[in-house]
Structure formats: structure tokens, C-alpha cells
Design a protein around this nucleic acid. Structure first.
Length: 212
DNA sequence: GACCAGATGTACT
DNA sequence: GTACATCTGGTCT
């Protein structure tokens, strides 16, 4: 079981007090996505606390969203956690070597989720969590965590930012060109001017067509 | 900034 | 069997 990066250690006394409960995750997916900005993703492992502050997310809107793994009601073993109750973790592997973590939203049977694209930690290099796979690597998340609960868990919790939302940027989602029109939907949310945001507007690359 | 390789699970034929 | 993925790091210009 991969461990969190030691540089992501946190002092529980310095985290926001409130722990997100079931109701937080059962709200509308875009609402949850925005409210995850600034929130701390916390993992307790080996008797220590680790975590990072979420600075960039994307909403995936279930059966009606061609970019979502649950598009058209697709229901396979991999995506099953998306059909669970709000507050579950959905972790999947891409490109054979990377993992991406999502927070499941709404209620059981509605397969929507929020992808965590980037986070930050005062003790870690500025861009070390700038990307969904980097976030998973930093926190030691992989497929075995898919389906775990972020509510009432001994290992995971989300602590929303009590300060409220700061300057939020909105754009289209990254890396979903295969989804056609839906790739332009404004479902990516990020904290403006945070150095850990994974893709800067000026450096976004257009996806190359896959070589055959 | 642009381009490319990497390594394998997952979905579908 | 086959195509491709909610990506990253390195190289080259």
C-alpha cells in the first residue's frame, strides 16, 4: 500500500474544524465541486495525518455527460463507486501508470463525481500536486481506495474551507476532447493565481490525435 | 511551447 | 483481439 508523501504531513490542530458530512456530498455536483476548492483532503495513515488543500477540480455529470465514465448509464465494475452514495471515493487508472481520484456526489444510483485535479501544501514543492495523477501519488492513492467512504471513515476526511470561496476561475475540462461538445462545457473550477493549478491557460496543449 | 514515449487496465468487438 | 484512456516527464526548438 503506497504511503502518503512525508512532506504532506499535517497538524490536525491547524486544519479547518468542520468535517464534511454526507449532506455536503449529496448536493449538486457543481456546487460540491466549487465547495471543494480550498478544502483539505485528509488521509490518516500509519498513525499520522497527511493532507493537501484542493485548488482545482472538475465536475463529471453522469449519464448525460459524454466525458463521464458513467455516460449513457454505463455500469461496470470499475465505475461502480460512482453509483454509490455521495461521499465515496472513485479512483481509476489511466495510461497504464497513473491514478486519478474523484469524490462521488449526489445520491446512490446517480453516477456523478468531482475529479480532484490539483492541490497544494505549504510544506511541499509548489507544483508537486499540480495534476490529478500527482495528487494521487502524493497522497498514496490507488485503485484499492476506490469505493472507500470519505464520511465516517477512520482513514479519510474532507475539511471544507471555512473562509469560503475565494477567486474562482472556471474553464472547460482538460483532456476530454473525445467527448465532443461536452469537452467545452465549463465544468473545471480552480482557485485563481494558485501556483498549484495544474494547467495554466497559456500552456494548455491541444491533445494530439492518438497515433495508430 | 511543441512533441513524444511510456505501460497496462478497461471496455468493447 | 484491439483500441484507447479524466496523464506525466523528458527532449528539442
Amino acid at each position: 500500500m503506497p504511503r502518503p508523501d512525508p512532506s504532506l504531513a499535517v497538524d490536525p490542530r491547524e486544519l479547518p474544524r468542520t468535517v464534511a458530512g454526507r449532506a455536503f456530498f449529496r448536493r449538486g455536483t457543481r456546487r460540491v465541486a466549487r465547495d471543494l476548492l480550498g478544502a483539505w483532503f485528509v488521509r490518516k495513515a500509519a498513525g499520522r495525518w497527511f493532507g493537501a488543500r484542493i485548488v482545482e477540480v472538475e465536475a463529471y455529470l453522469g449519464a448525460g455527460d459524454p466525458a463521464a465514465h458513467s455516460f449513457g448509464g454505463r455500469r461496470t465494475e470499475r465505475v461502480e463507486p460512482m453509483y454509490g452514495d455521495g461521499g465515496l471515493l472513485y479512483v481509476f487508472q489511466v495510461y497504464g501508470m497513473h491514478f486519478c481520484a474523484n469524490v462521488v456526489t449526489r445520491h446512490a444510483g446517480v453516477a456523478e463525481a468531482v475529479l480532484i485535479r490539483a492541490a497544494a501544501h505549504p510544506g511541499a514543492a509548489a507544483r508537486s500536486l499540480a495534476g490529478p495523477a500527482k495528487f494521487c501519488r502524493g497522497l498514496g492513492l490507488d485503485r484499492r481506495h476506490s469505493g472507500m467512504d470519505l464520511v465516517g471513515s477512520a482513514e479519510f476526511e474532507i475539511r471544507p474551507d471555512p473562509v469560503g470561496r475565494r477567486r474562482v476561475g472556471i474553464s472547460s475540462r482538460i483532456g476530454v476532447d473525445y467527448a465532443g461538445e461536452a469537452s467545452r462545457w465549463p465544468l473545471r473550477y480552480f482557485l485563481r493565481e494558485d501556483p498549484a493549478v495544474s494547467v495554466r491557460p497559456s500552456s494548455r496543449r491541444s491533445r494530439r490525435p492518438r497515433a495508430s
